[in-house]
Nucleic acid binder design. Structure first.
Length: 575
RNA sequence: GGCAGCGUAGCUCAGUGGUAGAGCAGGGGAAUCAUAAUCCCUUGGUCGGGGGUUCAAAUCCCUCCGCUGCUACCA
């Protein structure tokens, strides 16, 4: 475990084009959020930033399709994503935009540094130009008949039918995917290429030092290095992007912008700058990213596996090539995908469950718990409504919710709704305290190790411990013959409820607050429910005798078979 | 095609050389504080197939099968 450090957390930037689905959520934003909450709860100085990734031809065309100009389109989409993230409890310190000024300045800064250091070169490539659309077309926007299989709507980068990789020039009868026009020509265009091949030894050494990274991450990174890094074009002939400044490329790049994958990760830094500006913190963003001032920062990145190459190779090359002391990632947590009834979640086909529609059905905490407890860490996982309902009903409603309910209601009916002060803790209480001492330690270690499934399983085991204890001590029985014994059990039970709120907060923040408030108001920083003391004997004996508590309402309503049927129908699924 | 990952109980998954595990589901029981919620006990697997290394293999090697991802202009 790393001590006395600041924690910088970024989640892969959600692309501007539409509300994300549950697979995107768990693979980046949600797990990053849970980790950020854990770190804040532990009292560490934490900065968690995110942003929308906005540039590129895909955005231009999505705006076109929506009948909006690209600036308006992005502003609306950003607001929509910020809102749904807020409602999901994603606790960014700042949620920025890659189209904002800080990212533009930083992107141009890095490009200038790379140019000055000789890591960029000009190359002229042949690009398809559409006269009708008055723009260059990226390969995927040229469609035509596949020369290999005869598929009529093959894309210029790859035929979806026979999966062969194509060049737009191979297509028979090529036309624009935008307008359908076949008035195409091939024009030369000059672009900046980043000479990534120069960085292979440096990257290899860097990756080799990351012995604690998941195999999923290092194997993908090493594969790219083993195959030899190709130099990479970092500019594009589109309009929506960070403009290439005139002092780069001998003035041959007028009107061109940087490729979205060049500027997007730089927005991690840009969003931190935005955060500093929004909070009147001046240059404080540099303290998280630059030089000796950031030497006590441990930097964690969260992303789906498709993003790993850009974070293990592309972005590090940008930072290394600047020859400036920028912070590189320390811990990279990559996730697999969640499948929806065995198929993929699909944004384009709107298949599966999306963040906004999920919240129409159930509160965020139901989803947060389920997704963390089933995070696709080892391999792709499957979402089904039956499984979702089984987990929510058993773990949240029965094990946690009902525990809070039974002990608080018993206290209200038999002890006047006040923490009883009679009786003393005996062997059963000491046994429970010893068990939780170990479990909380384990739970904490799982979070430190970024093992989300295991953390959730341990948390659940802690909740179960509460039920086991109540069954063993049975205060509803002992109260008939030994009121003091029952009182001690109720007192410990109420202390458990309080501690459960603290332990559960990173995963289910809203419910944790509700649970806490059945016992007493949350004090201190209202935005955080802190991690409990790791001394369970002290932790579980801290409520004041005589303080009043509330009987809990139903915390988690159970999902019914009717609802499962309705949602399966609404979202499609069982096929 | 190439590369990588995965394949363990009905389901979701731990387990990387030393007696096959957890949760859920299924079966039996206890209890009656509680959202019919809980707790205890329990059934269940030739660890994808085959071959090899080893005193010992779910674990290491080879091979086959199946699923998934990546393959550089989707992001």
């Amino acid at each position: 475990m790393i001590k006395n450090h600041r924690v910088l957390i970024t989640s892969a930037l959600p692309y501007i084009n539409g509300i994300k689905h549950l697979g995107n959520l768990v693979g980046s934003m949600l797990t990053a959020d849970v980790f950020a909450r854990f770190q804040r709860a532990r009292g560490r100085e934490t900065l968690f930033v995110g942003a929308t990734d906005e540039h590129g031809s895909t955005t231009e065309l999505a705006a076109l399709e929506a009948g909006q100009d690209v600036v308006t389109f992005c502003a609306e989409q950003h607001a929509a994503q910020a809102d749904v993230c807020r409602r999901f409890g994603i606790s960014w310190d700042h949620f920025g935009r890659s189209s904002n000024r800080p990212n533009r300045e930083l992107t141009q800064h890095f490009a200038r540094a790379l140019w000055r250091n000789g890591h960029l070169e000009l190359r002229t490539t042949q690009q398809v130009y559409s006269n009708a659309d008055k723009r260059f077309l990226s390969d995927r926007y040229v469609i035509g008949t596949c020369p290999h299989c005869g598929y009529a709507n093959a894309r210029g980068d790859q035929c979806e039918n026979c999966t062969r990789v194509l060049d737009p020039a191979d297509l028979i009868g090529p036309r624009s995917a935008i307008s359908g026009s076949s008035d195409l020509e091939v024009r030369p265009s000059t672009h900046l290429f980043l000479k990534q091949s120069q960085f292979v030894p440096q990257l290899r050494e860097w990756i080799a030092g990351k012995t604690d990274w998941p195999v999923l991450v290092t194997s993908i990174a090493n594969k790219w290095l083993d195959e030899g890094l190709h130099d990479r074009g970092i500019t594009r002939d589109v309009e929506w992007g960070v403009p290439v400044p005139d002092d780069i490329g001998d003035g041959k790049l007028k009107g061109k912008v940087f490729y979205v994958w060049f500027d997007a990760p730089i927005e991690y830094i840009g969003a931190t700058w935005e955060w500093a500006e929004a909070n009147n913190r001046g240059d404080e963003w540099k303290r998280w990213w630059f030089g000796a001032a950031a030497s006590d920062v441990t930097y964690f990145q969260f992303m789906g596996k498709d993003n790993i190459p850009f974070h293990t190779v592309g972005f590090p090359v940008t930072l290394m090539g600047s020859h400036e002391p920028w912070k590189l990632v320390d811990q990279l947590k990559g996730f697999n995908y969640i499948n929806y009834f065995g198929g993929k979640f699909s944004t384009s086909q709107h298949r599966g469950v999306f963040m906004d529609t999920a919240l129409e059905i159930l509160p965020a905490d139901y989803w947060r718990y389920y997704l963390i407890a089933n995070a696709p860490e080892g391999s792709d996982s499957n979402f089904t409504w039956d499984h979702f309902a089984a987990v929510v009903n058993k773990d949240l409603a029965d094990v946690l919710g009902n525990f809070v309910n039974r002990i608080t209601k018993f206290c209200v009916s038999r002890f006047d709704g006040r923490v009883p002060g009679e009786g003393t803790y005996g062997p059963q209480e000491r046994a429970l305290i010893a068990e939780l001492q170990q479990r909380v330690q384990t739970y904490t270690e799982h979070f430190e190790a970024l093992e989300f499934r295991k953390a959730a399983a341990e948390l659940r085991a802690i909740w179960v411990g509460g039920n086991e204890y109540l069954t063993r001590t049975a205060p509803w029985t002992t109260i008939k013959t030994d009121r003091e014994r029952a009182a001690a059990a109720v007192r410990l039970g109420l202390n458990l409820v309080h501690t459960f709120a603290h332990l559960s907060w990173p995963i289910i923040p809203t419910a944790a607050r509700t649970i806490h408030e059945t016992i007493q108001p949350v004090t201190g920083n209202a935005a955080v429910i802190p991690w409990p003391s790791l001394d369970m004997a002290e932790e579980l004996d801290q409520l004041e005798a005589g303080q009043s508590i509330q009987a809990a309402d139903v915390l988690f309503a159970k999902i019914t078979d009717e609802q499962i049927a309705e949602w399966t129908e609404r979202f499609g699924g069982s096929e």
